[in-house]
Amino acid sequence: MDISGQIALVTGAGSGLGEATARRLAALGARVAVMDLAQEAADRVAGEIGGLAVAADVSDAAAVEAAFARVMQDLGTPRIVVNCAGIGTAARILPRDGSLSLDAFERTLKINLYGSYVVLSHAARAMAATDPLDDDGARGVIVNTASVAWQDGQIGQAAYAASKGGIASLTLPAARELARFGIRVMTIAPGLFETAMSAGLPPEAKASLEAGLPFPSRMGRPEEYAMLVQQIVENPLLNGEVIRIDSAVRLAPK
């Protein structure tokens, strides 16, 4: 799919991977809806790239529906939808104090997995109602974000790994179901990236993490994630697959 002239919607686009993706798609000629939980962050990014700012909690189905309605009214139907909204949690199944982490597990799955599904569902419904863009019958592309933790989950990442594993497992059945509408579904599983989640790490902790990355031995840059989104959108044969982008890292147990 040629990105220039298309309408795109990126969740979690007020910072990190989502912001970099929104900026790259806009630079390639797309009209971008910047969706984020924080209105101020969405306004900032949208203002700088000439996009549309939309505030919504992805775990709130009604809020997502309203956001899609506004995007379709102000811009048109998005043909490119990228799910970057999510949270990182660290909670043991059996903490030392004997308590249980049920609330953290539920909240993580609600935002990461259910939120991705809500956005995917609304995107699919909107795209399916459009005319094909080419002779293949393509109508759109949906890119979800998992994590290498879906395969390499560490101690304390049970909730996070489960949520990202759900996103990864969703990829193929979603791609198969939506194929008849000409809608592709892909998932990116990032490794260690320079985002808000890693920004607070002490220098020695960051250096230790980077030492475990085979090559390149550094954290990924959000722009490199955005580059992969571009390649997925532009390559029509990429469908129903999870791509790790991780410097060949395999996370240790802890």
Rank of each mutant, 00 (worst) to 15 (best):
M1N: 08
D2W: 00
G5E: 01
G5A: 03
Q6N: 01
Q6S: 07
I7L: 03
A8D: 10
L9G: 07
V10T: 07
V10F: 10
T11D: 10
G12H: 04
G14K: 07
R24I: 00
A26T: 03
A27Y: 06
R31D: 07
R31Y: 03
V32Y: 09
A33F: 12
A33C: 13
M35Q: 13
M35I: 12
Q39Y: 03
Q39I: 02
A42Y: 05
R44W: 00
E48P: 06
I49P: 12
A56C: 07
D57G: 09
A62P: 02
A62K: 06
E65M: 02
E65I: 01
A67K: 12
F68R: 10
F68P: 09
A69M: 14
R70S: 15
R70V: 14
D74I: 07
D74N: 11
L75C: 14
L75I: 10
T77K: 12
T77S: 14
P78T: 12
C84Q: 07
G88N: 13
G88D: 10
T89N: 14
R92K: 15
R92V: 12
P95V: 11
G98E: 11
L100I: 05
S101I: 01
L102Y: 05
L102I: 07
L102M: 09
D103E: 15
E106T: 13
E106H: 10
E106D: 15
R107F: 02
N112L: 01
Y114N: 14
Y114W: 11
G115I: 04
L120K: 01
H122P: 08
H122L: 10
A123P: 06
R125N: 13
A128V: 05
D131W: 01
P132R: 09
D134I: 06
D134F: 02
D135A: 15
D136C: 11
D136E: 15
A138V: 03
G140P: 06
V141I: 11
I142L: 06
I142Y: 00
I142T: 07
N144G: 10
A146S: 15
G153P: 13
Q154A: 13
G156M: 02
G156T: 01
A158T: 05
A159W: 00
Y160L: 01
A161T: 00
A162L: 02
A162C: 03
S163K: 00
S163H: 00
S163P: 02
G166V: 02
I167Q: 04
A174R: 10
R180S: 13
G182T: 05
I188D: 08
A189H: 11
A189I: 10
G191H: 05
G191A: 09
L192I: 11
F193Q: 09
G200E: 06
P202R: 04
P203A: 10
E204Q: 13
K206E: 07
A207R: 11
L209C: 12
E210T: 10
E210L: 11
E210N: 14
P222D: 06
Y225G: 01
M227I: 00
L228E: 02
V229Q: 04
Q230V: 04
E234D: 04
N239D: 12
G240L: 01
I243D: 00
R244Y: 09
R244D: 13
I245Q: 08
D246N: 15
V249T: 12
P253L: 02
K254M: 11
